[in-house]
């Protein structure tokens, strides 16, 4: 191909972007392992292997350069996001099926890298939680520490996990609040389970750290995480003020579930979210609103996946209506003469 100007290029590639995203996930993973044992590492390995194998297979079927696209790292990012959003002690096939859906259906059936209208990891999560709601809501109990061997047995089906799993803080709350006893409040639940949420806030901290790294690397801009977290905080703050018995406080809302993972790694997926500055704000605020609504009024404990997918649908439209003014078209620029 004739190579025209510019002849200079900045040393950056899709691969380096993706690998830095993977790198940014590591603090969160360290905290995850610290509090919930090495099970998540097995899930990460399973998801990565499945994702790369599926990617290579589909690329071969689509007659695309296999190595170039497998090595871009995008499948790895999807795999890791799936592993981190799925329950760590879920059976092996749960994450394998989820990853296959993400790579084959959500990514390649739509045209592969850069073409997917929906966030692949969130498609996987949404599909699996609809199909296997029970398996998808069993999370390890913080109090129990699980070693590598136990984790293997649980994941590969040698033993059952009922004894050592419990719901996530969000799930516990929603089960309690939506239970038969109308007098239950957040306070009574928290009184019963004082360590609720412990560990999750450290993991959230790890994600925050990774997110700040991505901001510093200019891989993501401030718009998406800020608007997402602000809208969540605002909704939580107002609702908590109005009805503290049934609505979580700001801190709980932001630190529980995958809020921070979503804020820095899922909402910020460039392919399926908005690209204009104003569009990003609207998109992320919309995800925040939907998440909060689903958490409190919907049928699932955490609504991030559905919220992201819903806003993915709207992203092109938002982009279209939020095109920034081009050079010289800002309203304060009027010619002195005509």
């Amino acid at each position: 191909m004739a190579h025209n100007s510019p002849y200079l290029t900045k040393a950056s590639s899709v691969q380096s972007v993706m690998l830095r995203v993977v790198l940014a996930l590591i603090p969160g993973i360290v905290a995850y392992v610290w509090f919930f044992g090495p099970a998540v590492l097995i899930q990460l390995g399973l998801a990565s292997f499945t994702a790369i194998a599926a990617e290579a297979l589909v690329l071969k079927l689509r007659k695309r350069p296999i190595w170039r696209f497998v090595s871009d790292g995008s499948a790895l990012v999807t795999a890791w996001l799936i592993a981190l959003s799925f329950p760590p002690l879920g059976p092996w096939w749960l994450i394998v099926v989820g990853t296959l859906v993400a790579i084959i259906v959500a990514k390649h059936l739509y045209g592969g890298l850069g073409q997917n209208p929906f966030n692949p990891a969130m498609v996987a999560f949404a599909l699996m939680i609809v199909a296997y709601p029970l398996l998808m809501s069993r999370w390890p109990n913080v109090a129990t520490s699980i070693n590598f061997q136990q984790a293997c047995e649980l994941i590969f089906g040698a033993s059952t996990m009922d004894a050592i799993t419990s719901a996530t803080p969000l799930d516990t709350l929603r089960t309690a609040l939506h239970g038969a006893d109308a007098s239950t409040t957040i306070q009574t639940v928290l009184a019963k389970t004082p360590r609720l949420g412990h560990g999750w806030d450290w993991i959230a901290g790890g994600y925050l750290l990774g997110g700040l790294y991505l901001l510093q690397q200019r891989i993501i801009t401030w718009h998406l995480p800020t608007a997402f977290l602000l809208s969540m905080a605002l909704l939580a703050g107002v609702s908590n003020q109005l009805d503290p018995a049934h609505f979580n406080g700001v801190a709980f809302e932001l630190l529980s579930g995958g809020t921070l993972l979503a804020a820095f790694f899922i909402v910020t997926d460039p392919v399926s979210s908005c690209t204009t500055p104003r569009g990003k704000l609207i998109f992320a605020a919309g995800v925040g609103l939907m998440t909060w609504v689903i958490r409190h009024f919907g049928g699932y404990p955490d609504g991030i996946a559905f919220a992201v997918l819903l806003m993915n649908v709207a992203a092109p439209l938002i982009d279209m209506y939020t095109q920034p003014p081009v050079f010289g078209q800002k309203s304060d620029m009027k010619p002195k003469h005509d």
């Binding site: 290029t9 590639s13 592969g112 890298l113 850069g114 073409q115 891989i219 460039p270 392919v271 690209t275």
Partner: peptide, 15 residues
Amino acid sequence: PAPEMPCIRCGECAL
């Protein structure tokens, strides 16, 4: 130039 990859809409160009 390295082989062309699909646009991932990262927005670097807009910045």
